[in-house]
Design a protein around this nucleic acid. Structure first.
Lengths: 337, 337
DNA sequence: CATCCATCCGTAAACGTTTACACAAGCGAG
DNA sequence: CTCGCTTGTGTAAACGTTTACGGATGGATG
């Protein structure tokens, strides 16, 4: 059993050449009788075209890669969820890469584009090193980067403005009369960690509030690590009346810790997060969060890549998604029904 | 610019034949001098082998597909998370398919195996129709099914026993002195829905409790739909003292509804779920849940597929993962510290 | 009736690899 | 000195498609 039928098998059975078979299968003009012979042969044999051979000839794989740190992160998950249907509708398959936030791994993915197993890549790097930037510039296939990139880098890019976003939340907290606003951040050597840390300082200054180092704690962008950090912060500065969290997972950890500590949210401490993941809305109390439009960014990235594949020559595009504050119970209390 | 360098380019530059180039790159025995010439040429040109051409010749793609209903479902997510590293370690890429629980879509994926763009498929169908079974049997590449399949179907299979699992939870609830145990299920035309519905009835019988239709409500396996169903159930049978939920998302919805209704968990109503997703442990109160070993099933499926690719001839394997009850606050209250 | 054009189809090359086979050179053994 | 074996390399075929090109056929046109 020589595996599945090929175009040669069909040609033999239909009594025509492989060229005719190919033409019929691709809908090129052909005599009606030939069309019929080929189609019935193909049907009888259960022919399915070999995508590898097709790719070799056409130099297109109809596959697109998506590389992110960890699929379990709700933000990346939301993106995959949006990216997939867009690609599927355009006839592309999705190849998934988890890099564990390892820059080396990300560079490996970029290098592997030379193998030509995908037509393009959407990536969302956490740490943007010089080497990574070089690898992006040298990539052998179109790349779309979600997140901030250095100015000089000519690459399709989807970004948001977490700085402005964090400011929205601080203004909101301040507007509620809170003035001792703690801040729990993720690692400072990541792009979002650095940006959000700076934004917190800026935001306080703009509000005329003093920057007090003892109100700032650094952990990681996960729930457990966030909870740990909140615990430390609370020990050191028990009198905070608000908590700004660098993302929603940290905020969820904060809710847990505050509840254990007997603090009411938002009466004693108002809590705000960032990313507006689904869990934020479902938590109790529901968490006020700055939406950075994850879904929208995912869709935009997919669309940028499709456009790029369609027109390789156009100048690199930058799409910016505007942050938006979603106010919920964790800052303003339960809505009356 | 004729795209990237190929072995032909290298051969020209090194002054050898393409066969020698291929041999060197694949580590076959070659004269030292030739090795050197080829490697430096490859290095200088920044050569990367074309995986499509390699696949065409070798008939292997080093890609494996995973098809599930919806990546946002925490259970499937947990599986992807486990499957990916196993495959990656074995040198395979992961191609992701979301089918929206559409049987037609799943059959489409199975058919597409004929295109030979992957070496195998791991799938987790929600509804097992006759047509799906036929498509599995006719698949042109190795398939591993996670979930129950009809007895006759010869296919590698990873399953669990949700029936026994649900029984564990019912026994636990009954052991706590609860006897009016409501049940909120997902769609009955899905494999898990049907199994869990039957298990509930069996479990009650085994405990000597009467089956009361008014204690059973059907929604969907999501939080919002689950919450709706719980609301209906609560209206109809306000005197329940326990709630068995067919999965954890439903249980999370239940917590929300019960809180709104002023019922204390677990004092007034004990709540148990199924799947033991991360969220169950993080909820408040933390949800008692039947673990069906999602992570373990994912790993097992990946391993089964790798083994199958290694030995096409061996008889189909079935791996069964034993369910395990994880007791948390939603049934027994807060642990003393 | 010769010419031209349109239509249809087959031959062969190409995509970038791997690999069977053959050939040349070198060398030890008879 | 010849035979045969080993070692290293090149030629060419193959994987399954798509497609440029040219040949054959037949009808319309002069």
């Amino acid at each position: 059993m020589g595996e599945g039928p090929t175009i040669t098998t069909i040609a033999a059975r239909a009594g025509v050449s492989i060229a005719s078979v190919s033409r019929v299968l691709n809908g090129l003009p052909t005599r009606q009788e030939t069309v019929h012979k080929v189609l019935s042969a193909a049907e009888e044999l259960g022919y399915v075209p070999n995508s590898v051979a097709r790719s070799l000839k056409s130099r297109r794989t109809n596959q697109i890669a998506f590389a992110m740190a960890d699929i379990a992160n709700p933000v990346y998950l939301a993106m995959v969820r949006e990216i997939q249907p867009v690609l599927k509708a355009a006839g592309y398959r999705l190849v998934l890469h988890s890099t564990d936030a390892d820059v080396g791994d990300e560079i490996g993915v970029l290098r592997s584009l030379g193998e030509r197993y995908v037509d393009g890549l959407i990536m969302i790097p956490l740490r943007v090193t010089e080497e990574l930037v070089k690898a992006i510039a040298a990539a052998r296939a179109p790349v779309v980067v979600i997140g901030s990139v250095p100015d000089g880098l000519r690459v399709d890019n989807v970004r948001t403005d977490s700085r402005t976003g964090l400011r929205l939340a601080l203004d909101h907290l301040h507007g509620l009369g809170r003035s001792r606003i703690g801040f729990v951040n993720g690692p400072l050597d990541t792009v979002p960690g650095a940006a959000r840390g700076a934004a917190y300082a800026d935001g306080l200054a703009a509000l005329g509030l003093p920057y007090q180092p003892e109100l700032v704690e650094t952990g990681d962008f996960y729930r457990a690590e966030g909870a740990e950090a909140v615990r430390r912060l609370l020990d050191r500065a028990p009198d905070i009346d608000a908590l700004m969290c660098a993302n929603d997972l940290i905020a969820l950890g904060a809710l847990h810790v505050l509840r254990r500590a007997g603090r009411r949210v938002p009466e004693d401490v108002a809590v705000a997060g960032m990313d507006d993941i689904d869990l934020a809305a479902d938590a109790w109390p529901a968490v006020t969060s700055v939406s950075l439009g994850s879904a929208e960014r995912g869709r935009a990235a997919a669309q940028l890549l499709l456009d790029r594949l369609h027109d390789a020559g156009r100048p690199p595009q930058v799409v910016t998604v505007r942050p938006r504050l979603v106010v919920r119970a964790s800052t303003v209390g339960e809505e009356p029904r």
